[in-house]
Structures are given as C-alpha cells and as structure tokens.
Design a protein around this nucleic acid. Structure first.
Lengths: 139, 139
DNA sequence: GTTTATGCAAATTCTTTGCAATACT
DNA sequence: AGTATTGCAAAGAATTTGCATAAAC
C-alpha cells in the first residue's frame, strides 16, 4: 500500500537522507498528522530541530506532505497518500478527522466531500474539511 | 443585524473596555477574519500588542470569536455571528471562504454543509470547512 | 472598595537564516 | 567532483508571563 520512504523520495526526486527517511517513517508509524514539535520529540536524539523544519518545508514544496487544518493552533502535517501508479489522491479535497479523545488527526481518504453550494459569485477551487468527533478506536 | 460592541460584551458578561470595543468594531468593519497581526496594525496606536493577545484569548474563551482554519499558517479569528435573540448561529458547522486573490477570509453563514459520510466507527460532532477560490468581489 | 484589564518589560517559544562541514549522486 | 543537506549558532518573530498602575463595576 504505502511505499517505503526511499521509494517516496525517489518519486519526488529528492535526495535520500537519513533525516528524510526518519521523518517519513514517523509519519507512517503514527498514522496521524504530526506537528513539528511532535516530530522533534521523536527525532531530537538523532536530528536537529532546524533540519526537521527544513525537511518539512522541502516536503511541503514537493507535495509530499500537506498542512492539516487544526483549530488547536499548532500547525500539523500529514503525508499525501500515494497510489501505486504514483498519482496522488484528490489534492484539492482534503478531509481530516480530529478525535476529541485521543487528539489524533487522520486524513480520511475514503470519505468524499459532497458539493457545497456557495453564494453567487464565489468560485470554488479547493476544499478542506476538518471534522471533529470521536474516532473508531476511541468509540 | 449585528449588535454593537457594548451589547455583545454585555451578553457575554465581559467588562466593557475600550480595547475590547475597538477589537469588536474592527471585526465588524473588516467583515473578514483577522489575525493578531492584522489587529495590531490597525490598533497599535491606541492599544498594546499584549492587550490584543489577551483580548483575543478572552474572546475565544467566551465564544465570542472563533479560530478560522487557514492553510497559510497564520491563525486568524472571526466573530461568531449573533442573532437578535442572542443565540449563536450553528456553532458546530463553520464554512470559511478564502479568496486567493484578495486573501480575505470570510465566514459563509448562508451556505450549508451537506452530510458527510464517515467511515464506520467515526462519530461526527463538529465540522469546519475551508473553501479556497475566488470571491464575489474579485471574480 | 474590590475586582479585573492594561501597559510595559522581559522571558519563552517558534521559525528562519548564514555558513562551514558532511553526505549524496 | 559537484551539488544539496546537515548541524550549530545566532537572529528574528510570535506568544506568554509578572507586576505595578489604571479602569470598570
């Protein structure tokens, strides 16, 4: 399903470095959106705070991760999912679910976002939905 | 339609101060979501940066404003709309529209959010939708 | 008169930048 | 070898805290 870090980096024409692999592995392991602070906690023994910032920036620019909208204030990021053919999932439609209990934020790839009727004159290019509630594990 | 600052503050049992009135007026004037920096630019002549931070915090805690999800990273805030009877608009359903051209973020009170079908086991309590595109004025 | 908010200074925290050393292709 | 990435130090923003003064009730 989800390709290994090296494959992902190659697909995006990024150099394969330990820090980048570690960040990608962390995202896969946690299966939830992570903030810089989350990553720093996990990786600070091995990698510099600044390198993690730069890694996130690089990944964002390469569309390897995306920002997750979060009402808590902290900026979080999540892996953009991949298909085996290398195509992204629908990039102008993100649905994220935040669990009130465990606090984790997950991308819901399966759910689809219905059309929203906007007022006259508004043109819709991209939509991001944050659903808050209780996740399957905490339910 | 929108009550004046003093009324809003009274409804929320908050002391009526100049800074609070000024912040509320600014939100009404601009009719768009504002960041702390936006408010500071406008109000710095008369009020301290720190006071604006504290005002925003107080307003958030009193549910007088809410955070607006923004993919740009900056935290923005918007007034929770009021009805004359003092009730809020649907508080577990926010739709915000961000214009790519003018950069403004507005709450779309009129638009309604259709039901989203979530995967098994997920319980939905609150939804926040950020739509990015071109607004009526820039179109 | 009592309680709460403000302003200023300073402390924290968050994020970015410069540059030499290191790792990748 | 040549180019991009890393780590460290340090700069720059953003946000929070402490405390005396001022304003609100």
């Amino acid at each position: 399903m989800s390709p290994n870090p090296v494959t992902i980096l190659k697909e995006h024409k990024l150099r394969i470095t330990n820090c980048r692999k570690a960040v990608l592995s962390t995202f896969s392991d946690k299966q939830s959106a992570l903030s810089h602070a989350d990553l720093e906690d996990i990786l600070k023994e091995n990698y510099d705070r600044v390198t993690i910032y730069r890694t996130l920036k690089t990944f964002l620019e390469s569309d390897l991760i995306h920002k997750v909208l979060d009402d808590s204030g902290a900026t979080k990021y999540a892996l953009c999912s991949h298909n085996s053919d290398g195509t992204h999932h629908h990039d102008h439609e993100h649905i994220h679910f935040k669990c009130e209990i465990c606090g984790k934020i997950k991308c819901l790839e399966e759910a689809t976002l219905p059309k929203v009727s906007l007022p006259k004159g508004f043109v819709n290019k991209e939509m991001s939905l944050l659903v808050t509630g209780v996740c399957d594990k905490c339910n």
